[in-house]
């Protein structure tokens, strides 16, 4: 067995330097709920593990002028207890809180969920719907990416060597906004999404003035379904608009048949969840 180097630096600069020096064999450890499982299964064989939980910027939540910056390594449990986030972004919070079990929530982070790059990651469709951007730091400095641009394919990201996702930014949103995330699993917990759907809306009275839809587990990447959003914007979320948005979701699906679901089932459920998540998001928007 080869030795694994472990480092737990206090600053992002140090973390980036260690990761860059690992020359491709480095892995970032936040909660470890994916990495440690992969280590045990022999799937991941890193030479260096960079634990980022001592880096303040990555483990705190800050609010500035209505926008939230969530450290990439903040645990689901901490996010779930954040009153302001729960009030303004209930869909994002419920999506993050669906990852794993209660015990896993104490460790699992949105940064880890994103960088694991599973198309079925629960937090990602909700983040996509929320219009979240991520701040990435690497040897060449900082850059920003829309959350949907981070994954490159199942298990692969667009991060360059030495780059670390530092935080998520949720934009300030107008009054009358709400979001929701729903996933379908055959059980009631401890499972992986067969389909996941995040919807974020802004309502002016009964009329939808802005919408974003994120769809998970129906393609190699989590999808931003712009056609679904278009079908909703300007409508009163009537049956015709909802069906058009559902159809857009079904049309966007490029799923596979596997042990977790069939192409037919996943495609159908994408439409079902769009309608249900939209109804919840709209209800939340109206009460804001």
């Amino acid at each position: 067995m080869t030795d694994i180097k472990y480092a737990a630096p206090d600053t992002i600069e140090e973390a980036v330097a260690i990761l860059a020096a690992a020359n491709g064999s480095g892995r970032v450890l936040a909660g470890g709920t994916d990495l440690l499982v992969q280590l045990r299964a022999g799937i991941a064989k890193p030479g260096t593990i960079v634990d980022v939980k001592k880096i303040a910027e990555m483990t705190t939540i800050t609010e500035t002028d209505g926008a939230f910056r969530i450290g990439a390594a903040v645990s689901g449990a901490v996010i779930g207890e954040h009153e302001a986030l729960r009030t303004l972004w209930p869909g994002v919070v419920e999506a993050i809180n669906l990852i794993g079990s209660t015990q896993v929530q104490g460790r699992a982070s949105p940064g880890g969920n994103l960088c694991n790059a599973s198309p079925a990651a629960d937090s990602v469709p909700a983040m996509v719907a929320a219009g979240a951007t991520v701040t990435i730091q690497g040897p060449d400095g900082r850059r920003e990416l829309p959350v949907e641009k981070v994954a490159a394919g199942p298990g692969r990201t667009n991060l360059a060597k030495g780059e670390i996702v530092v935080s998520f930014t949720l934009p300030k949103r107008p009054k009358g906004s709400g979001d929701a995330y729903l996933r379908l699993i055959p059980r009631t917990e401890m499972d992986i999404a067969v389909v996941g759907c995040g919807v974020s809306l802004t309502m002016d009275g009964d009329t939808c003035t802005a919408a974003r839809v994120g769809l998970g587990a129906v393609a190699p990447l989590v999808l931003l379904v712009e056609d679904a959003a278009k079908a909703l914007v300007g409508s009163k979320l009537d049956d015709a608009a909802l069906e058009a948005a559902a159809e857009a979701c079904r049309a966007a699906c490029k799923p596979i048949d596997d042990k977790r679901g069939t192409i037919v089932y996943r495609t159908k459920i994408a439409g079902v969840l769009l309608k249900r998540a939209t109804a919840i998001a709209a209800e939340r928007a109206r009460s804001h």
């Binding site: 059980r187 009631t188 401890m190 499972d191 992986i192």
Partner: peptide, 11 residues
């Protein structure tokens, strides 16, 4: 046990 689905308590 992830994909061989025995019931969980909340089911």
């Amino acid at each position: 046990f992830l994909d061989y689905r025995i019931p969980v308590a909340s089911d």
